[in-house]
Design a protein around this nucleic acid. Structure first.
Lengths: 236, 236
DNA sequence: CCGGGTATTTGCGATAGCGCAAAACGGAAC
DNA sequence: GTTCCGTTTTGCGCTATCGCAAATACCCGG
């Protein structure tokens, strides 16, 4: 099996506090794979046979209801893990993972987790921290959905995406992977129609520039203001 | 310091796979305390100086926005941990914890966590699992808020409370701690008014019996049906 | 360069649920 | 028993947002 280039992963928070030799040992158990744009990595409900570290590209994790509605749980950026079902004690994946761009991942077999976690406490501790961070994010999202209107929620969602996966351009910050109105709707608990209306409005005010699966934040600061403004404060 | 009675905690999932001697060592680092009904255990934003295991009673974890709106993050039942800020790498509590009933807790100092986690991998693994389970619950809640109407969400919330903290009575299942319409609103992303209207409706159909901070599910099965029914299927 | 399919925009009517306000109720303290 | 305060109930108008439908616009493959 091809050796993984350590320089890509050494400085990830996931491996903070792991000694180089130990890291070597951890990486020896992984293989790497490439997923082309729009290909499925795993399906909700399938046996959790592996867990993943994204090296390159972007992955969308989405959860589907029995009746077919979907929500986007999160977008995975390079350097982040996903598919940790095993680590948190699930036999099946709770969501579906899809590459939204050509992506390269490291893959560990589920069976390797217990040994790795016991042998490398830093790895377990780091994983606990990332899962905890995701829990915080979920709570924040619940708080927003409970207390804010759609426009604010969309603003927050885009700002978060920009921070996580934004590419700085002269004209502003571009979300660095293809994302549709529908995706944003599924991140914010609304419909693609409403998202479209909101972005149209922003576009006419020069706040964003957007097109087919593409969004550029032209005036991030003014969007921050939008995101934080309380329900009443009206517009012109 | 008073020795903690092992029989109360031995069989908790948190300590699964921990040897009796080790458990003894873990418990030696804890002290216990009693919080009377409606007393604060810690405040959102405060230094995370301790983490907790609830032995008896019920605790509400709630998150507040800068503008003062609150949501209930969860209710803690006996045997569950809370205030794990440290374990997930936070220096400050992300929510406020309040005893909703006279409660007894075990308290470990934050500083004890890193050593315990490293020394007892089972403890770390179990904690990762509980945090993971909470993450799943949060995602479920987000999914519900995104796809269901208020009545279904309230139904789900009550069923979950009944499962977690229900007391079986002849007449049905009673939520075993004081809980107001406002609390339920804050768990489901709606207002106390709407919750009140919904419960009034259910009461007149004999589904529930409720009063001041008290709810009995008289016909859990019919509430399950309500919870699962899709948006359209109308009522009489 | 030309389809065909997907994504986006936009209009318009319907409505679930909010927000405000006021009244009724229930419990606890004295 | 009475008072006081927090909780619950209920009425009513309002509106943010949905849901449906139709028209564009855009991109990709051939």
């Amino acid at each position: 099996m091809a050796r993984v280039d350590r320089s890509l992963v050494t400085h990830l928070p996931l491996f903070a506090g792991v000694k180089p030799d130990d890291l070597e040992e951890i990486l020896r158990e992984a293989r790497s794979a490439r997923y082309p744009k729009n290909s499925a990595i795993f399906e909700q409900g399938a046996d959790a046979q592996s867990f993943f570290l994204l090296l390159h590209g972007h992955v969308r994790a989405a959860k589907t209801t029995p009746t077919g509605e979907q929500i986007v749980v999160r977008y995975v950026a390079p350097g982040e893990t996903f598919g940790l079902a095993t680590a948190i004690g699930l036999a099946h994946y709770p969501a579906t993972a899809t590459a939204v761009d050509d992506s390269i991942v490291l893959i560990w077999p589920t069976a390797a987790w217990p040994r790795l976690a016991e042998r490398f406490p830093s790895l377990a501790a780091n994983t606990l921290q990332t899962v905890g961070a995701r829990l915080q994010e979920s709570h924040t999202r619940i708080l927003e959905m409970s207390t804010q209107q759609v426009e604010q929620r969309v603003a927050h969602a885009l700002l978060r995406l920009a921070k996580q996966s934004g590419k700085k351009l002269d004209q502003g910050i571009e979300i660095d992977f293809p994302i549709s109105r529908q995706d944003i709707a599924q991140m914010t608990g609304t419909t693609l129609h409403t998202v479209s209306r909101i972005l149209s409005g922003w576009e006419s005010q020069g706040l964003v520039e957007s097109g087919r699966q593409r969004i550029i934040l032209r005036e991030p600061h003014r969007i921050v203001v939008l995101a934080e403004r309380s329900a009443d404060s009206g517009a012109a």
